[in-house]
Design a protein around this nucleic acid. Structure first.
Lengths: 133, 133
DNA sequence: ATAGTTGTACTAAACTATTAGTACAATAAA
DNA sequence: TTTATTGTACTAATAGTTTAGTACAACTAT
């Protein structure tokens, strides 16, 4: 009876990876957004259905969805479901740059602790970018 | 009687930071190397002395030194002490690039999960680099 | 050889993160 | 209002990480 208003993303877990289940789910949502398999307004599987699907506890799914909500990636409503936030796909440039700034900062700091300068880092990344097909 | 063959780095721990003691020690050594407060051949404090200094267990210091040794940053010898590896300051370019490649890879992957392309990343880093005094 | 230094091994305690069990609360639809 | 859906709260079990206690082994110097 439910139309497929739900974009059928395939979730899967690798228990051997050492990556916590809830993080794997978050990553899969993020990646799906990144390559447009999920777009604004799309509904994620319900907490229960995904929990059954993956044979894990509903709370584990809920935790993933909660973190995604905190990051502003999804919004959630009891009785209705969890949906990709409109803002995400509108690509709010300000928020986007904040995210990039944040993860860049920690990367630069880490590289710096190994003695790399920002100049060196950029040069290295350019060799990668140039070298891809 | 001991000359200061030991470069007197100041170690300090922040128990509230949530960062494990052994990681804080590693980071402080790495940073000291990065800005030349530690150079090749310099001796680190002995496991015991640093443990007393910081009021922590010798094993915690030893764990830090072990990780640093695995990374090739220090070498250690019983009865003698722990020293900054010559290779570190010779800046073994091959190993150096491997390190940069490794941390870059995880950064690129993380940024990618947020939908950023390598091109975008590089452009962003360049704005930072251009903007520093 | 012997004494004093150094790092190391092994074990256990404390803490934290992760997941699950179970019951509940909010919303939507009839 | 009732029923079925949705997400949530609270607790506990489990596993993993981190630190400490304690005793040991390697090496240097005398």
């Amino acid at each position: 009876m439910t139309e497929n208003t739900i974009n059928p993303i395939k979730f899967s877990l690798d228990p051997k990876s050492g990556v916590p289940f809830y993080k794997q789910i978050i990553l899969q949502v993020e990646m799906a957004i990144a390559d447009k398999r999920l777009v604004n307004g799309d509904q994620l599987p319900t907490v229960r259905s995904l929990a059954v699907d993956l044979s894990i506890n509903p709370n584990t799914v809920a935790r993933s969805y909660n973190e995604l909500e905190i990051r502003g990636i999804v919004h959630t409503q009891q009785g209705t479901g969890t949906f990709i936030s409109d803002k995400v796909v509108e690509l709010d440039e300000i928020k986007r740059e904040k995210v990039l700034a944040s993860i860049s900062r920690s990367f630069i700091s880490k590289a710096g602790s190994y003695g790399f300068t920002l100049k060196e880092i950029i040069e290295y990344l350019q060799t990668i970018e140039g070298g891809k097909e």
